[in-house]
C-alpha cells in the first residue's frame, strides 16, 4: 500500500477508554487506520480487541477519549466545546457506512440468503426491491454463493453463512468493514473459503479492521498488525516485523503460544 501521510485517516482513536462498572476493558487506545489499510488486531481473550472494534460503530459507548470515522466523531456531535449525544436515527445513519461481520454470523434465520442481503438496502436505504435483488445476486456471486440465493441460513454450512454475512454487510456499500473473529466459529476446513473472500475485499481496496487469530492471513494480507493486551495497544507495526521480531515481552509470549 502506498503511504499518503496527508490523507485523513479512516479511523482515528485517541485515548479511547471503556469500562463496564469497575471493569476497565479499554485503557486508552490510540490508533489510526488509513483508507485502504487492512489492520489486523490480535491478542489474548479479554484484551479488549472486540470491544474496541464494537466502539468503532458505536455498538459500545466510549467512556473517555475520542473516536473518529472518516473525520466524523463517533456517537457525538461537537458544538463549540460541548459534546452532544447523537440521536438514535443519527447513530443508525452513520452505521450504514460501516459494515460489520460477527463471529457467530448473526444471519437472519427467517430470511433466505438473498433476503438477508437485500434487507438493509430495501428497508434502510429504500432501494427498489428489483434493483436490490440484482445487486444482491451480484454480491452472492462475488462471495461464490450464486446458487444459494434461495437457501435459508440453516441449510448452509458455517463458511457459507459467514460469506452471506459478508455479502450482507457489503450490500450497504460501506467505506469501512469490521470483522470480529470472522473465522473463530468455523470448522477448520471452512476457514479458507471465508479468508479467500476477505482477501479479495482487501485487494479491491476496502478499508478493513479485523480481530483475528489467523496469523497467516494477518501476515499475508494485513498492512498493519496490532497486539493488544489488558486493554492497551502493546505493539503495532508491519505484520512481518511484529510476527518475526516482536519487541515486547508480552507479544513474544503470546506469539509463542499461537504460532
Amino acid at each position: 500500500m502506498s503511504e499518503q501521510p496527508t490523507q485523513e485517516p479512516m479511523v482515528r482513536a485517541e485515548g479511547v477508554c471503556k469500562h463496564y462498572g469497575r471493569l476497565e476493558v479499554l485503557k486508552g487506545i490510540d490508533l489510526e487506520v488509513a483508507p485502504r489499510e487492512v489492520m489486523c488486531v490480535i491478542g489474548p481473550s479479554g484484551s479488549g480487541k472486540s470491544t474496541f472494534l464494537r466502539c468503532i460503530n458505536h455498538l459500545e459507548k466510549v467512556n473517555a477519549g475520542k473516536l473518529w470515522v472518516d473525520g466524523e466523531l463517533v456517537g457525538y456531535r461537537q458544538h463549540g466545546d460541548k459534546l452532544h449525544e447523537l440521536r438514535e436515527h443519527e447513530v443508525a445513519e452513520k452505521r450504514r457506512e460501516i459494515g460489520m461481520v460477527f463471529q457467530r454470523f448473526n444471519l437472519f434465520p427467517h430470511m433466505t440468503a438473498l433476503g438477508n442481503v437485500i434487507e438493509a438496502p430495501v428497508q434502510v436505504k429504500g432501494i427498489p426491491k428489483a434493483e436490490a435483488k440484482q445487486q444482491g445476486e451480484d454480491l452472492l456471486t462475488r462471495v461464490g454463493l450464486a446458487d444459494k440465493a434461495d437457501a435459508y441460513p440453516n441449510q448452509l454450512s458455517g463458511g457459507q453463512q459467514q460469506r452471506v454475512a459478508i455479502a450482507r454487510a457489503l450490500a450497504m456499500k460501506p467505506k469501512l468493514m469490521l470483522f470480529d473473529e470472522p473465522t473463530s466459529a468455523l470448522d477448520p476446513e471452512l476457514v479458507g473459503e471465508v479468508l479467500a473472500v476477505m482477501r479479495g475485499l482487501a485487494e479491491d481496496g476496502m478499508t478493513m479492521v479485523l480481530v483475528t487469530h489467523e496469523m497467516g492471513f494477518a501476515r499475508e494480507v494485513g498492512d498493519s498488525l496490532v497486539f493488544m493486551d489488558g486493554g492497551v495497544v502493546v505493539e503495532k507495526g508491519k505484520p512481518r516485523d511484529v510476527i518475526s521480531n516482536p519487541q515486547h515481552e508480552r507479544t513474544q509470549s503470546f506469539l509463542a503460544k499461537v504460532l
Binding site: R95, F102, F108, A169
Partner: peptide, 21 residues
Amino acid sequence: DEGQREAASALGMRQGKTLRR
C-alpha cells in the same frame, strides 16, 4: 438472540424496524 438485534443495528436499522422486521 441478542446477536440478531446487533446485526440489524450494525446495518443501520432503527429500533422500531428491527422489532418489526
